[in-house]
Design a protein around this nucleic acid. Structure first.
Length: 809
DNA sequence: GACCTGCTGCGGTATG
């Protein structure tokens, strides 16, 4: 055995810890000069696997000066843990290297020092990495780079942040004198092989794939209502089962309660405390709109055992990496298998231990999801993270990043990005368009100086204008946030952020609950909501207009399978036995479709004629299908519909009854002309406009303002909207405009999945039932529509806002 | 009769 491997093993054994086989495998491959991907769960010592690989490769070699090793993370909060783990091993191996962190939190002083004398190893984020690339002499800085590790690669892959990593790596390959070792660390996802290819790029010969065979058992237990007949058919809070949650909390030292939304977190926190006042001081909450200091405090208090329970959203999905907990409770359907498994993995954190997760259904039908999750996890049916292709906004940003540094040679850079996964299909024509766009602003914007960004000097493309360079550095990154309002006490003290939409519903003196406290709304001043502690016991809970997650296709597949079992009374799981009375009612009123059947129900009520269609494909797909079917019906009959949907199906409601059977004979689900019909059936332009707002920001068409002095959201929306209209009218070939439309088709309409679903549906046998009452499947969709009705006010508000925008232009 | 939601992530100047 190689002495260096022995040294690694010795190190572990001194810690009374044997290395796992995957770690030794990693060392062997690293020493042999390979790149690759490591598939390992948290808590398996994955950091040590790769860092020690590097350390032992340096035994008896005098390391060169300068930056040699990069560790890239998606979350800056994790950097300190990684740093201390690395430092521990470094000292033990007798190296006196500096391991430093470079993120937005790094002080100006430290930055300058790091710039002058780079550390041996740098822990950083994709954004900070690009900031470093935008410095003068960046190639000097990175020229001795030997290895780069991208941690939590599954979190970055599939997002524009992932593309930033791809692009940075493509540069490092060019800059570094020696062959660069590139390693990714990823949790289990459905497309690990692809994840590896994307990370390494196409000019890397085949990488090594290492899987930590540390399969841990995940035990899933559903929290069951006593009588399913009395449990709501629809809903999302799950508070009715709170009495069953308290004993679980009591029986464990530490519990994480995951909810799907921020307001749900606030509600559950408050309700748990109400039910059991003894929890005071032992319970906390954690979500993305809370003040960062509070969140950090919660993470540390959880770590030290100071608190027992944290109610949270996915903001805690990553952050508790090094902080073991006993038990997890998931409130409401997690919508995806991978997400559920990851949350479960937060408990029984050590290899070999069993993870325990409780699933709390928030309405009766969700019981089926509990059973479906169990099977999906057993069969390792995890979702894939689809890498984004040809995101030209990110590429434009990257080109300018290099141009504000030392500049670049266009032909060389073209070859370089051709080797990335994201841009391997880019054509010379598109490349030339991008360069021209940066030089002249393109056809539409050539009259404006601020869009003349680059010049050519000594065969290199550069940005020499200081103002453009500064503004660019301020705008690096791909996360485009929404405008939020700060919540502060009148006397100072920051609590977190809420949205204007919520506060516009309140008047001064009103009470709302936020961050677990009752607050009186005092006034709105300079984008800050000023509040005072309230003595009132009740108040509204804020809502945030966050993203909506559709049911993944993996999970819908397994739900259909469970429905099949319910239909045939093969009740081998407790969830299925429990839900049976409701299924009986569904069967009695209508039916439960077989997997090769499409169920359609119609009901006449005083509201009108309701058509319910149940493809079980997730709400995004249903939204598009609803638009498509409504359009196709309206072609032959002048009918308008109101549309509602959930993850199981959708509803078309109209005020006049018509012969649906006849309509169905026209093959409403046909694949012929489907693309055209979809575009006619939905408001694609509006969707593209919304996508374009982010694209305009990322590509640098719109400046989002100086730190602390953000340009008003309205202004950004208005300017991106103007640009969108101008391009649409005068420059339809604009590649950014085209990208906006492409993003709608691929991401919003989930193109690939949509065609698969349509194909499936068009081969399914239609079962059409007229019901005199709403079936258990149909009812929850109705509820969704009722809720939409309440939001008509906000539509008026939106119209008013749009008018305001026009006046401001 | 049943309900009343919608995740996460990062980054930063010049001037007074």
């Amino acid at each position: 055995m190689d002495d260096r491997i022995k040294a690694g093993i010795n190190w572990f054994e001194k810690k009374d810890w044997r290395p796992f086989p995957f770690q030794i495998e990693t060392w062997e491959n690293f020493l042999a000069g390979h790149s690759g991907l490591l598939n390992a769960p948290t808590g398996s010592g994955k950091t040590y696997a790769l860092w020690i690989a590097y350390l032992i490769s340096k035994i008896n070699k005098r390391p060169e000066k300068g930056l040699k090793f990069l560790w890239v993370l998606p979350l800056r909060a994790l950097s300190k843990d990684i740093q201390s783990a690395m430092e521990e091993a470094t000292i033990d191996f007798g190296f006196d290297w500096e391991i430093e962190i470079r993120t937005g939190d790094t002080s100006t002083k430290d930055r300058q020092r790091q710039k002058k004398t780079p550390p041996d190893c740098l822990i950083t984020t994709p954004e900070s990495l690009h900031l470093l690339l935008s410095q003068k002499k960046a190639d000097q800085y990175f020229k001795n780079l030997e290895a780069i590790v991208v941690d939590e690669w599954h979190e970055l892959l599939g997002s524009k942040r992932g593309i930033q990593v791809e692009l940075a790596i493509s540069s490092f390959k060019e800059i570094s004198k020696q062959k660069l070792k590139i390693w990714g660390i990823s949790a289990t996802i459905g497309n690990l092989a692809e994840a590896q290819r994307v990370l390494l790029g196409s000019n890397e010969k085949e990488g090594k794939f290492i899987r930590a065979q540390l399969d841990k058992e995940i035990k899933i237990e559903s929290i069951l209502p006593d009588e399913v007949e009395k449990y709501p058919w629809a809903g999302h809070l799950g508070i009715k089962l709170i009495d069953k949650v308290l004993p679980i909390i009591k029986a464990n030292n530490t519990t994480l309660v995951f909810t799907n939304t921020r307001s749900q977190t606030e509600i559950w926190y408050q309700q748990l405390l109400n039910k059991d006042p003894d929890l005071a001081g032992a319970i906390a909450m954690h979500h993305g709109s809370l003040n960062n200091q509070i969140r950090t405090w919660v993470e540390e208090a959880l770590h030290s055992g100071q608190i027992k329970v944290v109610v949270c959203t996915s903001s805690l999905d990553l952050g508790v990496d090094f902080r073991p907990v006993d038990t997890i409770i998931q409130v409401g359907g997690p919508k995806g298998v991978a997400r559920f498994a990851q949350r479960a993995g937060r408990s029984g954190h050590r290899p070999g231990q069993t993870s325990k997760i409780y699933f709390l259904p928030t309405h009766s039908l969700e019981l089926i999801e509990g059973a479906a999750l169990r099977t999906a996890i057993k069969e390792k049916d995890f979702e894939a993270r689809i890498p984004i292709q040809m995101a030209l906004d990110v590429l434009l940003q990257f080109i300018v990043t290099l141009a504000v540094g030392d500049g670049f040679e266009p032909d060389q850079l073209y070859q370089q990005i051709k080797n990335t996964h994201c841009y391997h299909k880019i054509t010379k024509k598109e490349w030339t368009w991008l360069l021209t766009f940066l030089k002249t602003g393109g056809e539409s914007l050539s009259a404006y100086d601020e869009y003349h960004k680059t010049i050519t000097e000594d065969n290199k493309i550069k940005v020499i204008n200081k103002r453009i360079a500064m503004r660019h550095r301020l705008s690096i990154g791909t996360i485009v946030g929404d405008q939020v309002l700060n919540v502060k006490y009148v006397k100072g003290g920051h609590l977190g952020t809420i949205e204007e939409y919520f506060i516009s519903k309140l008047k001064p003196g009103d009470t709302f609950w936020f961050s677990g406290k009752a607050l009186d709304y005092v006034r709105l001043k300079d984008m800050t909501v000023q509040v005072k502690r309230s003595k009132k016991k009740t108040g509204q809970i804020p809502q945030w207009m966050g993203g909506r997650m559709p049911l993944s296709s993996q999970l819908s597949f397994h739900i259909r399978k469970k429905l099949e079992k319910l239909r045939t009374k093969e009740l081998d799981e407790i969830e299925l036995t429990k839900i049976q009375p409701l299924i009986d009612r569904q069967m009695q009123l209508s039916t439960v479709p077989k997997t090769d059947e499409l169920l359609i129900e119609s009901t006449i009520s005083k509201e009108g004629f309701h058509i319910f269609i149940f493809p079980f494909e997730g709400r995004f797909i249903h939204e598009v299908l609803a638009g498509l079917i409504a359009y196709r019906i309206s072609v032959s009959q002048p009918i308008t519909f109101s549309i509602a949907m959930n993850d199981y199906g959708f509803e078309l409601l109209t005020d006049e009854v018509f012969d649906l059977e006849e309509m169905l004979s026209f093959d409403l689900f046909s694949l012929n002309n489907v693309k055209e019909d979809i575009l006619l059936g939905i408001n694609e332009t509006e969707m593209a406009k919304r996508k374009f707002r982010d694209i305009a920001s990322i590509s640098g068409l719109i400046f989002r303002g100086f730190p602390g002095k953000n340009i008003k959201e309205r202004h950004i929306q208005a300017s991106s909207s103007i640009l969108f209209d101008v391009f649409s009218e005068y420059e339809p070939e604009n590649l950014l405009l085209k990208q906006a439309h492409r993003e709608v088709i691929q991401q919003q309409l989930e193109e690939e999945r949509l065609y698969k679903s349509l194909k499936k549906i068009s081969s399914q046998k239609i079962i059409y039932n007229k019901t005199n009452k709403f079936s258990p499947f149909a009812f929850p969709i109705m509820v969704d529509r009722l809720r939409e009705k309440f939001s008509t006010e906000s539509i008026e508000e939106r119209v008013a806002k749009m008018q305001l925008q026009l006046e401001n232009i």
